[in-house]
Design a binder for these strands. Structure first.
Lengths: 244, 244
DNA sequence: TGTCGATTTATTGTATACAACAATACTGGC
DNA sequence: GCCAGTATTGTTGTATACAATAAATCGACA
């Protein structure tokens, strides 16, 4: 029950930081992203309230927003749970992200000033460093930072917001379906290649790089037919897999 | 203050229909869509609660969800208001919808069974009838039904949900920025053309039809430079337009 | 008369109490 | 030992009370 998670929060509370629903949303999102809160985890309102030192009112608002962000499942009269997207939805999420992020980088190609480009290149460089050091959490951090900045920089803010959402959802399912054998989902050179296209102002090439990048990422996941265990269950005619 | 709107709600309450946050969300969404609730309208929690016969708790949840749907603006310590997207955001929303709906219809081309296709064609036919009768509300209803069904039928559910959101947002800004001189935003033959492409199984043609359709729709709006009045205000150096 | 300031009002933020519902555990019968 | 029915517990749904904040109003003063 008691995660290392609670310590951060209690420290924040002790420091007098104002805990609002936004903070809870951020904390939970981050915890889900880093798999400290694995899919299916129950998130009772009172428990969350105790953890954050607020009442259910605040927690409820946070949960509603997290549900809108597809991070948790909120069903009537039932405890909220961390969402566990199906394999099918995972594929669809990747397809959607290819479409949206492809368009965003195409729009961005040749339109970025040197400052933004440099910041991106710095993140890419740090990602490589982190990977060489074997520091996977840091590597993920920098990789996410690149995509996140791309979303932020999108000239089309509507698409940018949609991309932010899709990056979050993709990250969740990557954590969920990553092949255990793989130490990392690092794809060598993809990010520098993308940035080179952006700098060179080649929209379609940039779109192509992103498309390949995301396809390669998806291929790294274990999205094949279910494992033997669950397959047997299905064959034996279990009424409902209880899996969204 | 008292709209015809309230009557429906009070009738529903009298009929013993269970009013939940979902109902409020639907009602407000619909009212915004049909411009019975024009952009900028204040939506105080107590007032809404009285109208629907529920307490603020329920209203708050509904407002939070409506904010997530980009229908209302919910800022801290401030009364929620019906969102008034800017002209820039309007253009971006249309661009996003062209991208997403284009992809969806491309995925759909040649993949629909006759039942779904027939249902769509019936809506298109009824739209034409309504237009010929001069019944604009009905025409909008049928037009929306077509796009809505396309979103529902999307093999990629993630894209489908995104499209549903974009259809709503587009409808809002159409109502907002429609040229007053125009009686209707009807585009002759576009929908039948789309359905023909879907039936024929021509993905790229279908994408092209949607793209043109949405561009034509956008061109029907008054998205030019601001009017003289507001322009003067800007020139005179008003500190902040206070308009999201 | 116009503007600044204080007071009042309107509205949201938060906590809490109770009701309704779901899931679980327990007990009695078979 | 197993199943059904019931009691209990856990959890969410809703309403309400009070605190905190923002907006509006009014009044004093220049």
């Amino acid at each position: 029950m008691s995660n290392a998670w609670q310590e951060d929060v209690q420290a924040a509370v002790a420091a007098g930081v104002r805990i609002s629903d936004q903070h809870i949303v951020d904390k939970v999102r981050r915890a889900v992203l880093t798999q400290r809160l694995p899919p299916g985890t129950r998130l009772p309102e009172v428990t969350l309230g105790e953890v954050f030192g607020v009442s259910r009112s605040v927690v409820r608002k946070a949960l509603t927003r997290l549900a809108a962000d597809h991070v948790v499942d909120q069903r009537p009269n039932q405890v909220a749970r961390v969402r566990a997207p199906s394999i099918e939805e995972t594929r669809e999420t990747f397809a959607a992200r290819r479409l949206v992020e492809g368009e965003v980088v195409a729009l961005l190609a040749g339109q970025l000033d040197d400052g933004a480009l440099s910041a991106l290149e710095q993140e890419a460089h740090r990602e490589i460093e982190a990977h060489q050091c074997g520091d996977e959490p840091a590597r993920i951090e920098h990789s996410l930072a690149i995509h996140h900045q791309v979303a932020e920089l999108s000239p089309n803010r509507v698409l940018g917001a949609m991309l932010t959402d899709l990056i979050l959802r993709t990250s969740i399912v990557i954590a969920l379906y990553k092949r255990p054998s793989l130490a990392s989902c690092y794809l060598d050179g993809d990010h520098p290649r993308l940035l080179a296209r952006l700098r060179a102002g080649e929209p379609e090439k940039a779109r192509g790089v992103i498309d390949e990048h995301l396809r390669a990422l998806e291929d790294l996941l274990d999205l094949g037919p279910r494992e033997t265990e669950t397959d047997l269950m299905a064959i034996l005619g279990r009424p409902s897999p209880a899996e969204a």
